[in-house]
Design a binder for these strands. Structure first.
Lengths: 191, 191
DNA sequence: CCGTCTCTACCGACTAGTTGGTCGGGAGTC
DNA sequence: GACTCCCGACCAACTAGTCGGTAGAGACGG
């Protein structure tokens, strides 16, 4: 199913969206980067929205897989949250994907094609759900504590992480700044 | 200095940037909205970057004025933070400026003209500085408490607010969701 | 083994529309 | 006369998307 060209187009689109957003990348950019004609991209993804949807859909699947694998290895709730935050810290440090695509697209949401916006919303819901489960378990086992319920705590944590990404980007990709902010956010839950 | 047309162009540009970001608004959009020719915009702002810089510069000034006026009226640190957060909650509720321009542009930062990026960074620095001062006073007077120092607390608060803006936007401009997240963030400081 | 039939992957050349930006000039004011 | 404000007409460059066509692989029948 997934040709080499097909996934290389997805890779290129993903990295372009991460750095520039939806509105500031073009088929020409991808064509040049992948080394194919523009028409080839249209062959695999009829329209720009289809391409973006495919990118986020793959991203959601990767997130699901990664979170699942992590949860299988790490059993304690506080360590799970630390792993989630640490994953992004490493991404920023390596500068390979220094921003959550969904968070970036969320900013542009009002100017996004509806199908793309749908995917962004879906990712947010899934992310909150997953972290809510982790935090809920942690609150019950005593590994975590919070004056709020699990869902509210999850929403605040996600907001802090996304805001920290913005701060790190403004500071020129400062992974230490990201870490400093997110560690403070985690401390609220680990006590 | 500031002609009517001049500031109406700025108003239009500001609202377009807030909803669409830098890369997805055009001179034609503004011309249609304000009811002038495209060339008129170029008369006042030679290039797109000049326009964006002017928008953020005015925004920074308005922030400075507003924060100053608020600080003059509200003397207690915890109330000052609540006023800052409450201002944005009201903006989202009224849907007039449901996002911080600087936060939106921060997401697009790598694709922004350098002069614009400079303004965005300047706003972030100013905002952090101001809130750091508020929090520092609150920590000394005992109105606030935090395991972290004032600057770190300010950075976490700002990140939470910006992340909450993203969450609210994804949820279709849900001001209650924004409030829920930011109140939890404030609670960390007010105890 | 040969022909042909079909399907996928791919591309060069094109289109209609939009982008930011320029130019020369007109109207009003000091 | 000089200056500010503004405009219609224009431009080169770029945008997403279309079109007809090619090259190759696999399947089928003879």
């Amino acid at each position: 199913m997934a040709t080499d060209t097909y996934s290389r187009i997805l890779d290129s689109a993903q990295s372009l969206i991460v750095t520039r957003g939806y509105n500031a990348f073009s088929y020409a950019d991808i064509a040049a980067e992948v080394g194919v004609g523009k028409a080839t991209i249209h062959h695999h993804f009829p329209g720009k929205a289809d391409l973006a949807v495919a990118v986020i859909a793959r991203y959601r699947q990767a997130t699901a897989d990664g979170m699942g694998a992590m949860a299988a290895q790490v059993t304690q709730a506080d360590m799970r949250l630390a792993a989630y935050v640490g994953f992004w810290e490493q991404c920023i440090r390596d500068n390979n994907a220094p921003f959550c695509i969904a968070a970036l697209l969320a900013a542009e949401l009002p100017s996004l094609p509806p199908e793309v916006a749908e995917q962004v919303k879906a990712h947010f819901d899934e992310l909150i759900d997953r972290l809510t489960v982790f935090i809920d378990e942690g609150l019950q086992s005593g590994a975590l504590k919070s004056p709020d319920n699990a869902e509210k705590s999850a929403r605040l944590l996600v907001a802090s992480v996304h805001g920290a990404m913005l701060a790190a980007r403004v500071a020129g990709g400062d992974a230490d700044l990201f870490s400093s902010i997110t560690q403070a956010a985690l401390q609220r839950l680990t006590g």
